[in-house]
Design a protein around this nucleic acid. Structure first.
Lengths: 204, 204
DNA sequence: TAGATTGTTAATCGATTAACAATC
DNA sequence: TAGATTGTTAATCGATTAACAATC
């Protein structure tokens, strides 16, 4: 099992490699990739070693092949489906953000309790009543849940998602979720992030 | 200098303490707070020790006093101003999210290059043309910048913010920023977060 | 070859956890 | 008091960095 951070950095490397490819760059050294990613060159080499991709002392890493190698490692061969719960400002922004970007990892359904928000398509994503969550998630074999509901409802939504078969959750609600081991949770806490920035901005 | 993580957890403890206070709870033990925050009790005790707040073996920590103590530690006495750059879907969602929440840390100005988006008020926040960024940021003594522009523009915006006197940045653009030491950057990379979730969801 | 880079291990660093005397 | 919790240090853990032989 690779470490969380390694996976995060691989995701970043892939994006940077895409830029290099577009710019017509064929090869890249660990040093250059490290500079772009804001990490050390040794870190890059260790991460790439971890996925079994080898470079050469003479030419470094082959941009195209490395990008594909990371893709093979990170992506599910058959693709994965995600569902979003909570069609508020943030929910819609997240839908817009991911809309059409990653064909192998698409948000296939969104849910809300507000009857005026459901039964239509937003940013290419079908919206359902929250009551249908379990059924729809099962039908689409959704493995990833995205939570953008208020803090008070987040734990309940998470429980329902897990019951429906989801095994990974991206949680934007500012509350730690308690879920069975085996379910992976990634927390994005904007309030905490902003307060950290404010605190350290003052220290300078 | 406290560690980044400690500051983040303090922000979380404060929120949890607020809930306890609303619920009418007067005292709390490290164990209970730890359970709510999803960390160990020793961690909680160490964090609280770090800000010089003491509990007692008999009654644990006093909810109200501890909350205030964390506030004194985290918040700037005179308040701090933040500015947001990039009034897209995400930018508006972020404005809505922080709107009216924290009086001591308010988003006082938003910027965009699109003339149709500026010179009005969104979620209680005044919107200016990007060309006026440096001037407005200086005038309001803004110390925190929030970047919600596309990746290609993020570095340029960050440079301008820093030139205008900002010393902390919350960056939503999926690109690592290169900035002078002394400027604190907190990165929120939704794409990376989602890809991590998808990856680990598959491992279970 | 000579010089630079890769793959990989050992050393370092920092944060978390465990443990326990002091305290209520 | 007895029992539980706090404050605080030592032990543990994991990740990062440094270093260097192997390679091109």
């Amino acid at each position: 099992m690779k470490s969380e951070r390694t996976i995060g950095r691989l995701s970043l490397y892939r994006r940077l490699l895409r830029e290099l490819r577009v710019a017509g760059v064929g090869n890249v050294y660990s040093q250059e990739l490290a500079r772009m990613a804001g990490v050390s060159a040794a870190q890059v080499r260790r991460d790439l070693m971890a996925i079994g991709y080898s470079g050469s002392p003479a030419r470094g890493y082959v941009v195209e092949a490395l990008g594909e190698s990371i893709g093979t490692f990170l992506d599910s061969p058959g693709g994965q489906a995600a569902a979003l719960v909570g069609i508020g400002n943030l929910g819609r922004a997240v839908m817009a953000y991911f809309s059409g970007r990653r064909p192998r990892l698409a948000i296939v359904a969104a849910f809300d309790t507000d009857p005026y928000k459901v039964n239509r398509v937003i940013h290419g994503c079908r919206c359902y009543p929250a009551a249908e969550l379990e059924q729809v998630v099962r039908e689409h074999s959704v493995s990833v849940g995205i939570i953008t509901v208020p803090a008070t409802e987040a734990q309940g939504v998470a429980d329902t998602l897990v019951r429906a078969g989801v095994s990974g959750i991206l949680n934007f609600a500012p509350v730690p979720l308690r879920l069975p081991t085996g379910v992976y949770v990634e927390q994005i806490d904007m309030t905490m992030a902003l307060e950290k920035v404010a605190f350290f901005a003052r220290q300078r």
